[in-house]
Design a binder for these strands. Structure first.
Lengths: 159, 159
DNA sequence: GGTGAAACTTCTAATAA
DNA sequence: TTATTAGAAGTTTCACC
């Protein structure tokens, strides 16, 4: 994989798109004092290089009736079952992200549920997967996301 | 907050936008056999209702030189320090999401770092925050995201 | 609620610098 | 690499169902 070098203009284009993917390229061009064609070419290159993998909406899950977030740590009977269990995990629609981890747990995943009853069902579902010996749940009382930390100037400027 | 009711058409519009926020409204219209004007009006309503909070790019963080993900559980000396510590946490650019949790930890956050050395620095930074008594780190060896689970048909169709 | 068409804006690719 | 340009494409509004 050839290393792709991004310059300051790329960073700024990415930052604007991170904040709003539907911002017109003409607006980006105006702010950066370059032409819209240049923005177009650069974004295309970033897509071709795979730096930009896609785009997605940020939804208000609370308003959609999902006000419950939990993290579930999973202990396996044998680590050789990891892939199998991970596949089962992803069949559960309420789980969006899972990690294979070192340390305390073997697998670690995020659950978004409607309420405590719904969450309980999901956790039981995880417990029932073949190979899972036990689970440990952490319930989120409040999620706080720092969107600024997603921007390029945070990513590329060291502390 | 008046409850906003989404119908099947809203779900399908959201699903298409979740997969690609820059898909033309005319394409959505064609697929759903409605007019582009209708798509426009519905999206606007979803935005006004706050269901759509925004949009963002999905970036390949590995290609940007960030190949390290960890979750850090934080124990506080006193729970009254929660807000203070959370604010400090969000000043660290490598942390994008933090949760106030019940159970094992008081605060729980996700760290995206360049490498193990960088991660160590970040974790030490967390340890140094006033009020933090100790931390527990789980290193992710592999992250797997199930994008399908973000779609409306997963969210609204119960198991 | 939705439509369809007009007016306006943006995108995109080719050409030129 | 970047800028310009012009035709294609998309968005947005509005009068009318």
């Amino acid at each position: 994989m050839a290393k792709f070098r991004l310059d300051e203009v790329d960073h700024q284009i990415l930052d604007m798109l991170i904040e709003n993917t539907r911002i017109p390229f003409t607006d980006i061009a105006k702010k950066l004092l370059i032409s819209a064609g240049t923005v177009h070419v650069r974004v295309k290159k970033l897509e071709e290089a795979g730096i930009i993998k896609g785009s997605s909406l940020t939804l208000d899950y609370q308003k959609l009736g999902y006000s419950f977030i939990a993290y579930v740590g999973i202990f396996l009977e044998k680590t050789s079952q990891t892939k199998f269990v991970l596949n089962r995990i992803h069949e559960i629609p309420y789980i969006t992200v899972a990690h294979i981890t070192t340390g305390k747990f073997n697998i670690f995943c995020k659950v978004r549920a409607k309420n405590t009853k719904n969450a309980k069902d999901i956790i039981f579902m995880i417990d029932d997967i073949e190979g899972v010996s036990r689970t440990e749940t952490m319930i989120s009382l409040e999620e706080s996301i720092n969107d600024k930390n997603r921007l390029m100037h945070s990513i590329f400027n060291d502390l």
